[in-house]
Design a protein around this nucleic acid. Structure first.
Lengths: 410, 410
DNA sequence: GACACTAAGTTCAGAAAATGAACAAATCAA
DNA sequence: TTGATTTGTTCATTTTCTGAACTTAGTGTC
């Protein structure tokens, strides 16, 4: 009973645990640290049953005790996932060279390197496999407990998080990347759309752990968005939930590369802002350049930032009206949100949201570094390790009902 | 084991069943009829366990066998909820007089009457209680198995489906209507926003039973909308999910009663269409009046329908982009969708959705009669009877863990 | 600081529920 | 008719959960 999970070949937690143990892992990963009593109530089990389940998971190295919460009576001890229970590799195919990171179950980055980007899935699989030894080199524990690889890319991914249905950037159509990488590297692999990966990492590793429903809007060259609803990533019926970049914001506006006109992407993405600046004869390498121009009173710069900010604000306001999320998390790589752009975005949200709700939906701005996508990718691997393949409700349980860990270990 | 549920005082199914039985009821109500083997896989149980659970639920009168599906091997028999397992009363507070219906678990309306509308919750509770005997009069079975009352209203309802947080129409603020009706009538009562109630009835009774993620847009005097996501009603963080009527569609447009400008409600609701018509000197009692004018070439009528249709189409397109639902169900009481208005709506959806997705999201139009709201209300009661109070995941289970039916009946 | 008080978490015998394996039943296909 | 195939049942055995009593670790009070 005290043997460690990773004494046997790496496999999803899923396959090693009993149904109750799995449920518990899911609840903790959705709700954050909980005391045994809270868990028992949440799962509808007796304290007695919970006691045993928690003990087994602690012995397995999956959970550990964290803070003690004092109240009336005996203090309760919160249990959380053990950060070093498993390690994951995440790769972002959004940049060249492609960042490749190693992190633990808390999302803490332990090692970092990069690999050349390619459009050939075989070459990618090769590069990942080649890169693994040096990434893992100084970390024997991580090597032993490596539990998955995640890949983030720009494009559509199917609900199994295995196949890229379509990617304009990579020029892909129905590429079973996860399978290819899995077979080449021998490590369980999952892929996901960039924005969705970021949302999962915010839920699993980040600042949204305790929030059940929220949306992440990620600003980069393009605009990505993804929703968590009732504790789960909502991918949409065709994996297209969150494609806010192609909401029509300026009906009849500029043509977009998607074939429509007036998409948010043509108005508020960094790419659009840079292009509009260039068209106005303004030097604009990053957002701060044009923010600076605007602050010195340049009318064109002000106009551009106003237009971009109102567009994004309107889109976010629509999102709030439609989904009433508990939080909007705006992540941005470039520049800052303290300037005109951020101000206009906030104003536009306020003026386009039902007055009753204005200010009711927290908007959190988060500046992120170049590791977001890779970390997001790793979080996809982590999620699959913890919860198992994306499923509706309980429907996955049958796949691995056999062999709860007791039978294998004792 | 063969005693019937309703031999004892009516209570949520919830409280009488074991955890597995409850899970099964939930899965069936979310996914429609299933064979025992399918259920076993879905719940992660053995066929052996499933066999017993199904037998018990059939004996209890909760499930019954429906079609037989022939394939290779022994045919499978689908089990579904027994329509006469329980009966519900639904009341719509959207019209005066307020419709009041009695229906079974299939949503079949068994009796129908109406009661005077009031803004005083006590008076409403009184009217409902007074109305019950005559509604139930000719239906002894329904009387015996009456399992809940549902009330639909225009406004915001909290997540317990008990309190009306705010209703402009009724001029309410924090009214615990469910409690008041429950105490007066002695019957378990739940309330819900009109659009959300319609969505639940479509999922439970209607054409969306097998669809896990969809949105309902209901066109009436106002415009309502509600989402089902992964098999569950998504109410939003403040119960405001689906408030599409106050999405800004025409930035800087006409002022809306909500305080903003250019809301969808000021452009595409029947109320707005009628007002715009009147402003143009057109007679417009119902949508067909102005559709007729348009078909004879009246420019003003065409302009109005175009504006209204584009607005609604754009809003729905935004909804599709943001949530990628598996179905958009548009319900309308008045007129038809075959005229100019419907055509423009469809066109606007097509032109504002990512071309990749155009035509991928089925749009279903459904003309509904005056019973929609009351039926929707009844479905809220039914849902609470089947699944128990609105909860996230498993978290409700602890409330009624004791006394599985075996102990009470044998 | 001794005392009750409270609530968290543990232990263990007994009860309930799920399993696996063998089997019965209902169809198709040849 | 026979075999293949898959659904659904039965039952002895195993696993899991429960209830009740108990231990533990604090708070608050005098």
């Amino acid at each position: 009973m005290s043997s460690h999970i990773h004494q046997q070949k790496t496999a999803a937690l899923n396959a090693l645990l009993t149904s109750s143990q799995r449920q518990l892992v899911r609840v903790i990963s959705e709700s954050g640290p909980l005391s045994r009593t809270e868990m028992a109530n949440l799962l509808g089990l007796s304290k007695a049953a919970m006691s045993g389940i928690a003990r087994d998971l602690i012995d397995l190295g999956v959970l550990h005790e964290t803070e003690t919460v004092y109240g009336q009576g005996r203090p309760s001890v919160r249990l959380d996932l053990h950060p070093e229970c498993a390690f994951f590799v995440g790769i972002s195919l959004l940049e060249d060279p492609a960042p490749m990171i190693l992190c633990d179950l808390n999302g803490k980055i332990i090692a970092r390197q990069s690999m050349p980007l390619s459009r050939d899935p075989q070459v990618i699989a090769e590069a990942i496999t080649e890169g693994l030894p040096s990434l893992l080199e100084a970390h024997p524990e991580a090597t032993e407990k490596l539990s998955g690889i995640g890949v983030a890319l720009s494009g559509f991914v199917d609900e199994t998080q295995s196949n890229c249905v379509q990617s304009t950037l990579l020029n892909w159509q129905d590429v079973p990347l996860a399978k290819i990488v899995r077979e080449r590297s021998g490590v369980e692999t999952f892929i996901e759309n960039d924005a969705k990966a970021v949302a999962v990492s915010e839920k699993l590793f980040g600042s949204a752990r305790e929030i059940q429903s929220f949306s992440v809007v990620s600003l980069g060259d393009g605009i990505g968005c993804a929703h968590f609803i009732d504790g789960k990533l909502y991918r949409g019926n065709h994996g297209g939930a969150g494609e806010i970049a192609h909401c029509t914001i300026e009906p009849g506006g500029s043509p977009c590369r998607c074939g429509k006109r007036g998409c948010l992407d043509t108005v508020s993405s960094m790419k659009a802002i840079k292009e509009m600046s260039r068209a106005e004869g303004l030097e604009c390498v990053s957002l701060s350049d044009i923010e600076n121009e605007a602050s010195t009173g340049n009318a064109a710069a002000i106009r551009i930032l106003h237009r971009a900010g109102s567009g994004l604000g309107l889109a976010i306001a629509n999102l709030i009206q439609i989904n009433d999320p508990g939080l909007i998390l705006i992540t941005h790589v470039e520049g800052s949100f303290d300037g005109l752009f951020g101000t206009v975005v906030n104003q536009a949200i306020e003026t386009n949201v039902l007055p009753r709700y204005a200010g009711q939906t927290p908007i959190r701005i988060k500046r992120v570094d170049g590791d977001v996508w890779a970390r997001g990718a790793a979080s996809i691997a982590a999620h699959n390790f913890l919860i198992g393949p994306n499923t509706t409700e309980v429907s996955h349980a049958h796949r691995c009902r056999r062999h709860p860990y007791r039978m294998q270990h004792l």
